[in-house]
Amino acid sequence: MKRFKKYLLSEINIEFKACLYFFAFLFYVCCCLFFANGETTVSMLHMAEIILATYCMGYLQVFLLDNFEEAEQLTPRYVIYMLLCSFVYATLDYLLGWTFHSIALAVGFFFYSLLCYLCVFLIYKLRRTFESEQLNNDLMSFKNQLNQEEGNE
């Protein structure tokens, strides 16, 4: 049961990230299609490929790459992981033709996914900073309550 719970937590985390990156990448692909060809629709096949790619990459990130976006600090190792994942996405973009097999747009995809990773890293970091503030406020209130109770006794 404990293992299943652990697996379920990881799965939720992976699926959340897959959806997050899917929509971010879909936005990039939509922009490319619109500005290059004036197209306003994206192929269902390409969308399926993007979600599958982000889902598989989620597994890779969580189980092999130390879940680097949630790391406390951006160490050189994590920067390499970010570069590596962005490179994989850009390669997939080029090979699967999400943005017309264009090298320039694939390079753009590389920098865009790198930016996405950085943003996600910063969002997690910011969230932890706010959480720490909240935790310390709660701790202070808790201690004050304890002291009050002792004073009453």
Binding site: E70, E72, Y124, R127, R128, T129, S132, L135, N136, L146
Partner: peptide
Amino acid sequence: NIRYVERLKSLPYNKI
């Protein structure tokens, strides 16, 4: 002992 906890910091993966 919570009385001796001076500061708390939220860590990745929901640890404190």
